[in-house]
Design a protein around this nucleic acid. Structure first.
Lengths: 222, 222
DNA sequence: TCAAAAGTGTTTGTGGTACACCCATGG
DNA sequence: CCATGGGTGTACCACAAACACTTTTGA
C-alpha cells in the first residue's frame, strides 16, 4: 500500500478506576510537555508499530504502576482538532483496579495521582469527554455484569461490596435486597474467614471465577 | 509532536446490515487490488487527515450507495498482522439500512452485493471476525433498544416487524406477547393505512421518533 | 366457501421492591 | 451494658411466558 494518504498518529489512553475512601477515583497524570503542559490527563501514549492495541494499553498501565487488572476497549476518539498539534486518533481503554496501589509517574508524566470522579480538575485534550463516557459505560456494565468485583480486593465483606456499588452508581441500595440478590446469583462464595473491627465480625467472601458474570438484559421486545 | 514513532495507517470499515427475503444480509464488496484481490470484504477506506471518523464512515456508506441511515461505532481492530502489507488500524462502524436499495461498487471495489449473514463467503483480512462481533452486538442492541426499526421501511405491519426480530435473533417469537409488548412500549403508532395482500389486510405502523427507545437493563444487582 | 394472514385475553410463575428488628463483638 | 456494624424474611406488585381460536379479506 503506497502512502496515498498521510497517516495520523495513533495513541492509546487508559481510564483507570479504583475505589478509595468510599469514592470512585480515576488515575490522572500531570503533563510535563506541551501541549497542555501542567494539565492533568489520563495516562496514554503512542502505539508502537509491532504492538497490538491492547498490549499498548497494558504497557501504559504498567508505566503507571498497575498490572494484572480488568481492562476492555472503550471507544475510539478521532476528532481532527482534538490535539492542537496534528491529527491524533486515540483508542481508549478502561481498567478497574482492586486497591489503592501506589502509583508512579511514568514516561511523559511529571506526577500521577488519584482524583475523585465527582470532583475532577481541568483536563487536557478531550479527556473530560472521555471520562464522561467511561463513567456512563462503567455504570452500565456494573448493572448487568459482574465487573464490580474487579474494584475490590480478593476478599471482601458484603457491606464493602454494597458500598462499592453505591459509590459507582451514585445511589443507595437496600441491604436485604442486595444481599439476597447477590447470593442468589451465585457469583460469590464464603471464604470461612471473618473480618473483625468495630461491631460484629463480617463474613469474608470471594468472587467465584467460574461464575456466570452476565445477566440477560430485560428485553424491550419479546 | 515530532514523529518519534512511525505512524500506522488508519481506515474505517462499515458493516452494513439490511433485511432482504426474510434474511439478515450484509453488504460486501469484491476487492479489485491486492492483497486479497477478488476476495469479498466489508466496505472501507482510509481516514482523511481533516475528516472525523464518523464522517469517513458515512463517506464509505455513500460510496456504496447508502445514505441517511443509523450508524454507530462498533470497535477498533488493530492487530499488527491483520493487513499483510503494513500496520493498519481500522475503526469499524455498523449501519442498519431500511430497504434493499440498489447498491454500487465504489472506489476500490469491483462489485458490491448483499450476502446472507448466515452464509458468508471467505472474507479478506479479519473481516470474518469483525462480522461475528458485529452480529453479536446487533443482537444485543436489538434486545434492549429500538434500533430494529432502522432495518424496516417507514411503515410496516406488526408481522413484518416480528419477522425482522426473528430473522436477526435467529429465534421464533410468540405473536401475542410480541404485539402486546411492543404496543405497550409506545414506540410505534398506527398510520391508519392498511396493507392488503393475501389474507386479511394488516394495519401499517410507523416508528414514533419521540419514543423512548431504550429499556433499563435487568440488573445483576439491586 | 376456502385459504391465508391478522388479530385478540387469560392464567400462572418469577423477579423486584419496600420495609424493621435481632445478633455478635469490642470497649 | 452499650455502641457499632452484621445479618435476616415477608408481603405485594409488575412483568414474562405459555397457550388457541375468531376475523377479515381475496380468489
Amino acid at each position: 500500500m503506497p502512502k496515498r494518504f498521510p497517516h495520523p498518529s495513533v495513541t492509546v489512553d487508559v481510564a483507570i478506576f479504583t475505589l478509595r475512601d468510599d469514592d470512585l477515583q480515576v488515575l490522572l497524570v500531570k503533563r510535563k510537555a506541551a501541549p497542555y503542559a501542567g494539565r492533568w490527563a489520563i495516562p496514554g501514549g503512542f502505539v508502537r508499530m509491532d504492538e497490538p492495541l491492547e498490549a499498548a494499553a497494558r504497557r501504559e498501565l504498567e508505566e503507571s504502576g498497575v498490572r494484572d487488572v480488568y481492562m476492555e476497549q472503550l471507544y475510539t476518539f478521532g476528532d481532527p482538532k482534538r490535539d492542537p498539534r496534528e491529527r491524533v486518533i486515540t483508542v481508549v481503554y478502561f481498567a478497574l483496579v482492586p486497591a489503592p496501589l501506589a502509583v508512579r509517574a511514568g514516561g511523559d508524566a511529571a506526577d500521577a495521582c488519584w482524583w475523585s470522579m465527582y470532583d475532577l480538575p481541568a483536563l487536557a485534550f478531550d479527556h473530560a469527554d472521555i471520562l464522561d463516557y467511561a463513567l456512563t459505560r462503567l455504570r452500565y456494565k456494573l448493572e448487568y455484569t459482574a465487573v464490580g468485583f474487579h474494584l475490590l480486593p480478593e476478599t471482601f465483606t458484603l457491606s464493602e461490596l454494597q458500598k462499592a456499588y453505591e459509590v459507582v452508581l451514585g445511589a443507595g441500595l437496600d441491604k436485604r435486597n442486595f444481599r439476597r440478590k447477590i447470593l442468589d446469583a451465585q457469583v460469590i462464595e464464603e471464604t470461612g474467614e471473618y473480618r473483625t473491627g468495630e461491631g460484629r465480625p463480617a463474613m469474608l467472601y470471594r468472587y467465584r471465577s467460574d461464575a456466570v458474570a452476565e445477566v440477560r438484559a430485560r428485553r424491550l421486545f419479546p
